[in-house]
């Protein structure tokens, strides 16, 4: 039995896909491999889950990429600010660079069962934000321990306010914060969208999550069964990414229906943000929290793609 914990609550479409995958794996391995989920964060934060994997209480976890920052810088490859502009870019890059992330995490003793796309995060706020000057007037929330988010805003001259997830709704209500960076479907699921008026329609960063399993535990499964687990999980992740794409599109519509206005940026504004990002990326490079050389290659590939007709 593989015990896998996640912060995602039960009953979400994501969990449904995961449960279906577990049922398929159990059927195809004739009950030799069972997966038991602990959704809704009942096993604690991502950090607690990683600790429990170490002592063997849990074998795996669906973990936000940011929580892997101390395990391997490779995990942060896709999550730097203003890297991608469209989902097509992400998909093309992933094809080339996913294996790198998988092999880097394998060196640390983790088997990656899949990397899932959680959509683009946008700045959402009570006032329209076009430039970093606009952002400077706002009280911006970043998740606690989110080094990349913090550095990004600090470079733009904004002192962000870091709060745990559980305090965000109340703090938006009271005005302790008025700007969040989040993807559309999470904004709706957490009901933060009821507290903002504007979305800056320029993706700040791309969010990913990953299911990792402890290598020692995984090797106890026979090689044939390992292949079955990997294959079914890969299929599940592919269908989840498709599902996620529709969810995000639906969530965008729902945002608009709820009276949230999408703020379009001019080409200069976009370039200004991307220039700001360059500074951030350079600063983060000195802290060695992402794979610098590989990221340069990734940027090069993006340049080439953008220049293709």
């Amino acid at each position: 039995t593989l015990k896998i914990a996640t912060l995602a609550p039960d009953g979400t479409s994501w969990m449904k896909v995961m449960r279906q995958a577990a049922a398929d794996i159990k059927a195809e391995t004739e009950g030799r491999v069972k997966i038991k989920y602990f959704p809704g964060g009942v096993q604690g934060s991502d950090k607690s889950v990683l600790r429990k994997m170490r002592i063997g209480q849990l074998q795996g976890g669906a973990i936000a990429t940011g929580s892997l920052i101390n395990i391997s810088p490779a995990s942060q490859l896709y999550n730097l600010p203003f890297t991608f502009r469209t989902l097509e870019e992400v998909r093309a890059i992933r094809e080339e660079f996913d294996p790198y992330i998988v092999s880097e995490l394998a060196k640390e003793g983790y088997v990656v069962l899949g990397i899932s796309e959680a959509g683009f995060a946008y700045m959402m706020s009570d006032e329209p934000i076009r430039t970093s000057d606009d952002a400077r007037k706002q009280k911006v929330w970043v998740p606690e321990g989110d080094l990349i988010g913090e550095t990004t805003f600090e470079n733009g001259g904004v002192e962000p306010i870091s709060l745990p997830l559980s305090d965000v709704y109340t703090s938006l209500q009271t005005g302790l914060i008025d700007t969040i960076v989040v993807n559309a479907s999470s904004a709706i699921a957490l009901q933060w969208h009821t507290k903002v008026n504007y979305v800056t329609d320029f993706p700040l960063l791309f969010l990913t999550g990953t299911i990792i399993v402890d290598q020692k535990a995984f090797r106890k499964i026979s090689t044939e069964d390992q292949a079955v687990v990997k294959r079914i999980m890969a299929e599940a992740f592919a269908s989840m990414d498709a599902q996620n794409e529709t969810d995000e599109a639906g969530a965008r519509d729902a945002l608009a229906q709820n009276g949230v206005e999408f703020v379009e940026l001019s080409e200069e504004d976009k370039q200004a943000w991307e220039e700001l990002a360059t500074g951030v990326v350079d600063e983060l490079a000195s802290k060695e929290i992402y794979p610098v050389e590989v990221f340069k290659r990734l940027q090069q590939r993006l340049e080439e793609m953008r220049q293709e007709p």
Binding site: P9, D10, G11, T12, S13, G40, S166, Y169, T170, A189, L190, Q191
Partner: peptide, 11 residues
């Protein structure tokens, strides 16, 4: 709030 968030996600 927590109840609301969980219930909301169950669509």
């Amino acid at each position: 709030i927590l109840y609301g968030v969980i219930a909301q996600q169950m669509s």
